[in-house]
Simulated assay, not measured.
Amino acid sequence: MSAGSGAALEAVRYGASELARAGAVLSVDLDAVRANYRLLGAQAPRAACAAVLKADAYGLGMERVAPALAREGCRVFFTAHVAEGMRLRQLVPEHCAIYVLHGPPPGTAPDFYQYDLIPVLNDPGQLREWRAAARQLGRRLPAAIQLDTGMSRMGMAPAELAAESAKPDWLSGLDLKLVMSHLACADEAGHPMNAGQRRRFERLREVFPGVPASLANSSGVFLGPAFHYDLLRPGAALYGINPQPDQPNPLRQAVQLAARIVQVREIAEGAAVGYGARWVAPGPRRIATIALGYADGWLRSLSGRGQAFVDGVAAPFAGTVSMDSITLDVSGLPAERVAPGRLVDLLCAQQDLDAVARDAGSIGYELLTRLGGRFHRRYLGA
């Protein structure tokens, strides 16, 4: 995907009949996703690089992203839920490993063996259930174990691990593929929590001699070799989110978003715009309404602080972000460039996901995964 706004040429590239039905167009650059995967893997040449595809590949579409990454050489994938893993199994080669981060909900063990999924066991209850499934089937079942090294979210606490590992049959029937933990502060390279979690992980994984280990998420990939172990687990970084917020982003942006102008009007000084009448024109203004709103994932907190771009020129939000629309102050821009039916850019060379998230008081992860289903999606490359 070429850099720049791209909106001026959208009608030519995409076709007027399709544009007439699309309030907004989301373009996903699969070549950028693949390039990001290569860059992430290159940070740790001695480790394998997985891909986290939870939440429908962070909202970009698992059906297109998963095969692209598989063609790039990815052989290990992660989802959050078992239903996501079942869906993913239809999209990647059968020899690919698929881990389910939330483990097996009660009663779902048959789904795991039918779809060749590997549960990440997070507590003694899941461990017992998976051992029981192995006994019932009369064969060893693959599994991963997650350890809580300080995030207090998921994974076995040190006391739980000590109690379970004291039992002689605690891993009976299990083919343990991976031991893992998750970093809480990896996006802050100097945070003492990182070194503390790594030390705890080193100590706890001594219970699993010879079992491959994984600690590095997207940001953890950039903390150095001590955090790499055997498997990297990048997620949002694959799609262009900056894993080091205080550093220039080394990754390619994988998404662009353009929304269509629905209406343009001239308003007088003192006229109010939007819900709550919070924005009042300081003088004569031209206001353009675009077909994008918080129902599409464009956060309401961007009211009064967000912006769109027309040929690289900023058009600030005027008024409150609504469910299906946003009003822009396009005063001073050429009338022909802001006519109804034209596209303005929301994600582009001038404004990436991280920049929009900062304006919204959020993070790029939230914005990316909230992008709605009403967009027409174009997949480029791969």
Rank of each mutant, 00 (worst) to 15 (best):
L147A: 06
A68K: 03
E72W: 08
G107N: 08
A132E: 13
V52H: 05
I118H: 06
P119C: 13
V65E: 03
Y115L: 07
S152G: 10
A132T: 09
D123A: 02
C96S: 12
A143R: 00
L137A: 11
L91Y: 10
Q126I: 14
Q136E: 10
Y113F: 11
G155L: 01
E63L: 09
G59W: 01
P93Y: 00
G155W: 07
A68S: 12
G150A: 11
P106V: 14
P104W: 10
R89A: 03
L137G: 11
R140I: 01
T149S: 08
A144E: 01
L60I: 12
L141G: 15
T108R: 06
G125Y: 14
L60D: 09
E63I: 00
M151T: 00
A80G: 11
G150N: 13
L117P: 09
A109S: 14
R140A: 14
G107T: 14
D123S: 11
I145L: 12
G150R: 12
E94C: 05
T149R: 09
A97M: 03
M156N: 01
Y58S: 04
E84H: 04
A70N: 07
D116Q: 04
R64D: 01
I98P: 01
H81G: 05
T108M: 04
G150D: 11
H81C: 02
A55D: 04
D148I: 10
M151P: 07
P110Y: 09
Y58V: 01
P110T: 08
V92F: 05
M86P: 06
L69A: 12
R71L: 07
A109P: 02
G103N: 05
P106I: 13
P158C: 13
L60A: 13
R140V: 03
V76A: 04
R153S: 10
R128V: 00
E94D: 14
L53G: 08
E84F: 00
M154L: 15
A109E: 15
V76I: 11
A83Q: 15
Y99H: 08
H81K: 14
E63Q: 13
P124Q: 08
Q136Y: 09
Y115E: 01
R87E: 05
L69H: 10
E129G: 00
I118R: 04
R153D: 06
G138N: 12
A134G: 14
I118P: 01
P158A: 10
K54E: 02
D148K: 07
Q114D: 10
G85S: 06
E94P: 03
H81N: 07
F112M: 01
V100W: 07
